[in-house]
Structure formats: C-alpha cells, structure tokens
C-alpha cells in the first residue's frame, strides 16, 4: 500500500478510536456518578474486560493457541495458588504462571 494510504489508516484509526473515548466524556458530563446508569455501565465495563481476559486464556488468537487448553488453564491455577501463597503479591502469581506455562509447553511440545 502507498505511504499516504498507510498514514491515512493510522490517523483514521486514531480518530475512530477517540470517538468512543470522547463519547464517554460526553456521557460522564451528563450522568450522576452515584446513579443506577453509572452502576450499570460500570458492570458493562467489568463484564467486557473479564470477557476479554477469559477470551485471551480460553480462545487465544495469538501464538498461545499452540499451547493446549489444559496447560493454559493449569498455568492460571498455578498463578492463583502462588498469588495467594505469597500474600496476594501480583508479581509472584504472574511469575509462577508465566514460568509454569513455559515449562509445561517445553515438556509437552
């Protein structure tokens, strides 16, 4: 593709993403942050983000798809075990989960 077209794509994508952010600001200006609508949209955010994370683990589109589902789920279980064992240290959980995925993928693959 031509350079100008590629620039147009980058700028267009930035503008089109900003539309949602800008709309969010417009909505914020108009709602009561203690009202039911705010609570509902907070729930929508949490459902979306949780769904996104669940999708990354269960149905990955990245190279993770080459790792079998039991290994991915096993690594998540190990991550949570380490997280709670080390008094809810995020680093401990993430390191344990990441390393165990690598080790299991190495041993199986």
């Amino acid at each position: 593709m031509q350079t100008e077209s590629l620039w147009l794509i980058v700028l267009g994508c930035a503008a089109a993403t900003f539309v949602w952010r800008g709309l969010g600001v417009v909505v914020v200006k108009r709602i009561d942050s203690r009202g039911a609508f705010f609570q509902w949209i907070t729930c929508v955010s949490y459902a979306m983000v949780a769904g996104l994370v669940f999708r990354m683990i269960i149905m990955p589109e990245s190279d993770l798809a080459s790792v079998s589902l039991p290994i991915r789920v096993g690594a998540v279980v190990i991550a949570f075990a380490a997280y709670f064992a080390f008094r809810r240290r995020l680093v401990a959980g993430v390191l344990a989960g990441s390393l165990s995925l690598s080790v299991m993928a190495y041993l199986v693959g």
């Binding site: 994508c13 089109a16 949602w20 600001v25 909505v27 907070t42 955010s45 979306m48 983000v49």
Partner: peptide, 14 residues
C-alpha cells in the same frame, strides 16, 4: 479498528 476499541466508551464512563 473502531469497533475493536469500542470498550473505551463504558471504560471512560466508569
């Protein structure tokens, strides 16, 4: 691209 990033609307509001 815009659709894939639509989550920013509820995220900004919350």
């Amino acid at each position: 691209c815009s659709l894939a990033n639509a989550r920013f609307l509820p995220m900004v509001v919350s």
